[in-house]
Design a protein around this nucleic acid. Structure first.
Lengths: 215, 215, 215, 215
DNA sequence: GATGAATGAGAGTTCATTCAT
DNA sequence: GATGAATGAACTCTCATTCAT
C-alpha cells in the first residue's frame, strides 16, 4: 500500500481519536489500530504524537478555510459574501464534525504551538469579518463612525456566535437545523443589527443603570 | 486545620491545574503539592481524580450562574436584565479566568459526565436568554411571529458570542476592554438586531442566490 | 523498609547489572527486579537511568579512591607509599570486581558526563603517581633531569599496567595471584626501572634502528 | 558496485558507529545510512547486528596484529623486537583510533563471543611478550630464575601499560606525543626494569612493613 | 488526621529484522 | 541486486491509587 494512502488513513484515524478523547487522553495505540497499521509505522510516517496532532490541526484548518474561501465570490456585495461564508462554514462543520471538534476544542487544550495554529486560523477569519463590517459601514447611508476596537469586538462576537451555532447544529440529531437555516438565523440578527449600528442606532443603558466602572 | 478549609484549598489548586493542563495532562501529584497537602489526603477527601474534576466543574458552574443571577433583578425590563446579566458574566469570567477555562474548554474535553454538567449549565443560560427574547418579542410593537427553533438559535448565537467575547476580553493585556465595554458592544448589535427582527425586518438573500446544491 | 536501605539495594543491583551488560544493554526492569523493588520506586528514588548510572560511577569511584587513600600513610617514603597504594588498589578491585568493571570499562562506553567522571578519577590517580615519581627522582643520587611529558607518560603507563593486572588478577579462578603478589610484580619492574631511569640509565635504540620519524 | 567493495564500506561504517556508540547504542539504521546502502542490503551481506559486530572485531584485531607482526623481524635481538613491536602498536592505534576503540573498549562491553575474540587477541600479544621476556632472561648475565606466573604478570603489565599509553597518546591533540616518543618512554622503564629484574635486583618491602591482614 | 512507602498498568518511542516487489 | 513497506518486542518513564503506620 503506497505511503500517501496510508498516511491519510492515519491522519483520518488521528482526527477521529483526538476529537473523541482530546490530545493527552488519545493513545497512539488506538490511533494505529483504527488506521489499520502498526504503531512503528505511524511513528515512521508521522514522527511523534505532537507532530501528528499538529498535522491534524493544520489539515483541518486548511480544509475549513478552503471551504469557506471557495464559497465566497470576491466581487459579491458584503452581505452576500457573509451569507455565503456562513453557509459554507456551517455546511463544512456539519460535514466534518470531528475535524471541527479538534479545531474548536481539543486544539485549545494543549498549550502553545497548537493554540497558536488555531488562534491564527481564528484571527484570519475575524479579520475577514472585520473587513466585511467596515465595508458594510462605508456603504451604509448613515455616517456614524465605528471605533476600531468595537469593530473587532463585533467580529469576535460574530465568529463566536457562528461557532456556538455550529456546535448546536451538530447536536443530538432530530432537531438539527440545516446549514442554510442556521446561516439565516445568524444573518438575521447580525446583519440587521449591524445595519442599524452603522446608521447610528444604538442601545442605551437606561439612566438608572449606574456606572459600569463598579463591575 | 479544619477539613472544609483544606478541601477548598485542594479544589482551588485543582481548578488551577486543570485550567492549565486539561484533565488528562493534570497530575494528582501537582494538585496535591499546589494544595500543600499529601496525596493520600487528597484521595481521602475527594476520592478520585474524576470526582475531583466533577467537583471543580460543579463549583465553578454554580459560582458563575450565581454571579449572573444575583446581578439580574427579576422585575427589570428585558433589555435591562440582559444587560445586567451580560455585564456580570463578563465580570465574573474576567475575575476567575481559571474557573472559566475549566468550564469553557477543559470540561468539554473529557467526555460524558462532564460534558453533561457543562451542557446543562449552558442550557440553563440559553433558556434564560430564550425567555428574554420571547418577552422582548411580546413587548415589541410589530407582531412578526418567531419560530421556536429560530429563537433557540438566536439564544445559542448570543451565548456563543458572549463566550467568544469573554475569551477575547481575557486575552493578552493591553487591548483588553472592560466588562462594561464588552457588554455594550454585544448589546448594541444583539439587542438592536433583535428589535428589528421581532418587528419583522429581516435580511433576505438576494433573489439570484439560489441554494448551491453541493453545500 | 526505610528509604536509605532500599536506595542502597538499588544501587548495588544497578552496579551489578551495569557491570554485566554495559549502560545501554542494561534494563531498568532487570535492575528493579534484582533490587527486589518495583520499577516506579527505582525512578522515584533515582530519577532516571542516566542519573542512576552516574550515581553508581560516583559511588564506586569514591570507594576505590577512599580505599587507596586510607591505605597510604602520607609520611612514608615514596616507594612505600606506591607499594601500599598498589596493594590497596589490587585488593579493592579484587574485592569489588563489579564496581571495577563499571569504572574501568562500562563508564567509558557512554559518552560525556560519565567519561568525564572516570577520566577525572584516573587523572587524580595519575597525578598522585606523578608526584611519587618526581619525589623519587629528587631523592635519587643521580641527577638526570626528567622531562615533564615523560613523567606523565610513565605515570600513565604505570596506571595502565595496574589496571591490566587488576583485570588479569580477576580472571578465571585458579591462577589468580593475590593482591600482594600482583603489587610486588609491578613494584619490581616499575620501581627498579624508575630508579635506573632517574639515575640516567636509559635504553638506547640500536644504531641501525632508523629514525622513529617515519612511523 | 561489486559486493566486496560494498561490504567493506559497510564494515567501515559499522566500525565508526560502534566506536562512537558502543554495541547496544549503535543502530543499524545509522550504520546503513553511513555506508550509503539500504538496510536490507546490510542484512543480506552481514546477516545480523551481532555477526556484523564480530566481523568488525575480527577485522580490526587482524589488522592490528598484522601491523605489529610485520614490523618485527624474527631474527633481531629481543629488545629490538620489543621496540619495533611497540612502535608499530602505537602507530597503528594512532592511525586507526576507531578500530582501536572498538577493540579496547566496546568489544569488552558485550559479553561472551566478543569478549573472547578480544581476549584471544590480547593473549596472543601477551604470549609474544612472555617469550621476549624469557629470551631476555636467558641472555642476561645474572641467573635469577623467573617464576612463570611472575613473567605472565609482567607481560600483562607491559601490555596494559601500552594500552594505557595508546589511549593517552590519542587524547586531546596538542600534547600528544608521537608513536616513537611513546614507545621510547615505555621501553625506558620496562626494559631497564626487566634487565635489573633478571639480574636479581628486586625491590624489597621495608622490613617493618608486614602484611596488613585486612587487605 | 495524616503520611512515607510502594505499585500495576499503560503511555510514547525505538529497534533489529523481514517480506513483496 | 536492491528497496519501500511493515512489524513484534522491548525500552524508559509516568500516573492514579493504596496501605501500614
Amino acid at each position: 500500500m503506497p505511503r500517501e494512502v496510508r498516511e491519510r488513513q492515519m491522519i483520518d484515524a488521528a482526527v477521529r481519536v483526538f476529537a473523541r478523547c482530546g490530545y493527552s487522553a488519545a493513545s497512539m495505540d488506538e490511533i494505529a489500530e483504527l488506521a489499520g497499521a502498526s504503531k512503528p509505522l505511524v511513528y515512521l510516517y508521522l514522527n511523534s504524537k505532537e507532530e501528528l496532532f499538529g498535522t491534524c490541526i493544520r489539515r483541518e484548518a486548511a480544509a475549513l478555510l478552503g471551504a469557506v474561501r471557495s464559497a465566497v465570490e470576491p466581487h459579491s456585495p458584503a452581505d452576500r459574501r457573509l451569507w455565503d461564508g456562513l453557509r459554507a462554514f456551517f455546511a463544512h462543520t456539519a460535514a466534518h464534525p470531528e475535524g471541527w471538534a479538534v479545531l474548536s476544542c481539543r486544539a485549545r487544550t494543549h498549550g502553545e504551538p497548537f493554540d497558536r495554529v488555531v488562534a491564527e486560523l481564528r484571527e484570519e477569519i475575524v479579520e475577514v469579518v472585520v473587513r466585511l463590517i467596515e465595508e458594510a459601514a462605508e456603504a451604509a447611508p448613515g455616517r456614524a463612525p465605528l471605533d476600531g476596537r468595537e469593530v473587532a469586538g463585533l467580529a469576535h462576537a460574530l465568529v463566536g456566535a457562528a461557532e456556538s451555532l455550529a456546535a448546536w447544529a451538530n447536536g443530538p440529531a432530530g432537531t438539527v437545523p440545516s446549514a442554510g437555516e442556521t446561516a439565516e438565523t445568524l444573518m438575521n440578527v447580525a446583519w440587521v443589527g449591524l445595519e442599524n449600528l452603522v446608521s447610528g442606532r444604538r442601545w442605551e443603558a437606561a439612566a438608572e443603570a449606574g456606572p459600569p466602572s463598579s463591575v
